[in-house]
Amino acid sequence: MKEHKCHLSSHQGYRAKKIAENLAKGSEMDQYNKLSQYINEIERSNPGSIVIMKLVDNYCDAVTGQGKFQRLYMCFAWVKQGFLAAYRLVFGVDGTILKGSAGGVLLTAIGVDANNGMYPIAYAATKGETKDSWIWFLTLLKEDLKIGRDYEWTIMSDKQKGICEVVFSNATHRFCVKHMHSNMSSAGFKGAAIRKALWKAAKATTPIQFRRRMEAIAELDTEAAKWLDDKDPAEWSRSHFSTYPKCDMLLNNICESFNNKILDAREE
Score class of each variant (00 low, 15 high):
Gln209Asn: 14
Ala225Phe: 04
Met214Asn: 06
Trp236Val: 03
Leu198Glu: 04
Ile135Tyr: 00
Met249Arg: 08
Arg213Gln: 14
Ser157His: 02
Lys200Glu: 07
Gly148Leu: 09
Lys231Pro: 01
Gln209Gly: 15
Gln209Ser: 14
Asn116Ser: 06
Asp221Gln: 04
Ile194Leu: 11
Ala197Ser: 14
Lys190Val: 11
Cys247His: 15
Gly162Gln: 08
Leu220Ile: 15
Ser157Val: 01
Ala225Gln: 12
Met156Val: 15
Phe189Asp: 04
Lys226His: 09
Leu145Cys: 12
Thr154Asp: 07
Arg212Lys: 13
Phe168Gln: 04
His181Cys: 10
Asp229Thr: 07
Ile121Phe: 06
Asn170Met: 12
Ala224Thr: 06
Met249Leu: 08
Glu219Ala: 12
Met184Val: 14
Gly188Met: 05
Leu138Pro: 00
Gly148Arg: 08
Asp158Met: 11
Met180Lys: 01
Ile135Cys: 04
Glu219Thr: 09
Cys164Ile: 15
Trp153Asp: 03
Ala125Gln: 03
Arg212Gln: 11
Glu235Ile: 03
Asp150Ala: 07
Asn116Gly: 03
Asp229Trp: 05
Asp248Leu: 13
Ala197Gly: 01
Val166Trp: 00
Glu235Phe: 02
Ser186Tyr: 12
Ala224Gly: 03
Leu198Asp: 03
Lys200Ile: 04
Asp132Gln: 08
Ser237His: 03
Ile208Arg: 12
Asp248Arg: 14
Tyr244Asp: 04
Phe175Asp: 06
Phe175Met: 07
Asp221Pro: 02
Glu129Met: 09
Leu138Ser: 00
Gly128His: 13
Tyr151Gly: 10
Lys131Asn: 14
Tyr119Phe: 15
Pro120Arg: 08
Glu219His: 10
Thr172Asn: 14
Met214Phe: 06
Gly162Ala: 09
Gly128Phe: 11
Ser182Gln: 14
Glu165Ile: 13
Tyr151Ile: 12
Tyr244Cys: 08
Ile163Gly: 06
Gln160Arg: 13
Lys190Ile: 09
His173Trp: 14
Met249Ala: 06
Asp150Thr: 05
Thr130Tyr: 09
Trp199Gln: 04
Arg213Cys: 05
Ala225Arg: 14
Leu228Pro: 13
Asp132Asn: 01
Met118Cys: 10
Ala197Glu: 00
Lys200Ser: 08
Ser157Gly: 07
Cys164Arg: 05
Phe168Arg: 02
Ala125Pro: 00
Ser182Gly: 07
Glu223Tyr: 07
Lys142Ala: 09
Lys161Gln: 15
Ile121Gln: 02
Ser237Ile: 04
Trp227Gln: 01
Lys190Asn: 12
Asp144Ile: 10
Phe210Leu: 10
Phe210Trp: 08
His240Ala: 12
Asp232Asn: 15
Ile163Thr: 15
